[in-house]
């Protein structure tokens, strides 16, 4: 007979502390898997170097070079890759390995798992952006924002973009049935979005139907927000409506945050399908 009387019902640690611990653990796991670190952080840098070297002199208008246009888009695209792609691939693998099922069997509040992922992603995304800017500034002549307003835009576009992509990544992790199929399911989505959202091409030169389709997804708006920060204001005339449409950027990204959160809460699976 067990006579021990439980004195507390929940962990003595608070939710933020648990989340922080989970985030530290996630980050530790990320940093210890060297291939993942190198590929996640180096791939966008490599792309910037390639694009910066190919399109050295092509001018668009208002003194903006094509390479500057692409690199600005790459900053947004690297957020998509880090937040959406990494999570949508990593979570099905953890589900397959039974890690999620184990967490589910403990009194850990579900939120703690998500907080851990979000913290890890936030650190990687910030590091990634800093590295990208450090490479892009001397190579293609992108300069840091000069006004407080631009800095503010940079921060909120980044944060809203990270949040939307992270939530969508967690939600999309339920689509892949197995960890092995996850890259095949996730990579095309991320890649197609990059091509239709004006990362590698000037957005307004894409077919109209493609522009309209791309406008449904967050990446197009993240790119547009980033251009408003890093490209001269006069270039706004080259956007589809002749302005940066920052209000609409906030609205669409905000809507994806809300939608992504709803999807996470309703569709997230802790066990594989064969686990019932």
């Amino acid at each position: 007979m067990n006579t021990r009387v439980a004195t507390a019902e929940r962990s003595t640690l608070t939710l933020p502390t648990l989340g922080l611990r989970q985030g530290q653990t996630e980050l530790k796991q990320f940093l210890r898997s060297r291939e993942q670190v190198v590929f996640t952080l180096a791939f966008p840098v490599l792309m910037v170097v390639i694009f910066g070297s190919i399109f050295t002199g092509e001018l668009l208008s208002s003194g903006v070079k094509f390479s500057q246009y692409v690199v600005t888009g790459m900053i947004a695209a690297s957020l998509l890759t880090t937040c959406f792609q990494v999570l949508a691939i990593q979570i099905p693998i953890e589900r397959d390995r039974g890690v999620l099922k184990r967490f589910r069997g403990t009194p850990m509040p579900r939120t703690v798992y998500f907080l851990g992922k979000i913290l890890m992603i936030l650190v990687i995304a910030v590091a990634e952006t800093i590295i990208l800017l450090a490479v892009a500034m001397p190579l293609v002549g992108v300069s840091l924002p000069t006004t407080a307003a631009d800095w503010l835009t940079f921060v909120w576009v980044s944060l809203l973009g990270i949040t939307a992509c992270t939530l969508c990544g967690i939600a999309f992790s339920s689509v892949a049935r197995t960890g092995r199929s996850a890259p095949a399911v996730v990579t095309p989505v991320a890649l197609v979005l990059q091509f239709i959202s004006g990362v590698f091409f000037v957005f307004t030169q894409l077919p109209t139907w493609m522009q309209q389709f791309a406008a449904l997804f967050p990446l197009k708006w993240m790119c547009q927000g980033m251009r408003s920060v890093f490209l001269p204001d006069a270039f706004a005339t080259q956007e589809p409506t002749g302005s940066w449409e920052l209000g609409k950027v906030a609205l669409v990204l905000g809507a994806w945050c809300v939608g992504g959160l709803m999807l996470c809460l309703t569709t997230f699976r802790w066990t594989t399908k064969r686990d019932g």
Binding site: T7, A8, S11, R97, P107
Partner: peptide
């Protein structure tokens, strides 16, 4: 067996200990 890649035995045990009240 669920595997925790790139974590040490004591790290996993401590992480789980934090989830419990006692």
């Amino acid at each position: 067996t669920g595997e925790f890649y790139e974590l040490r035995v004591e790290e996993v045990v401590r992480l789980f200990a934090g989830y419990y009240p006692n």
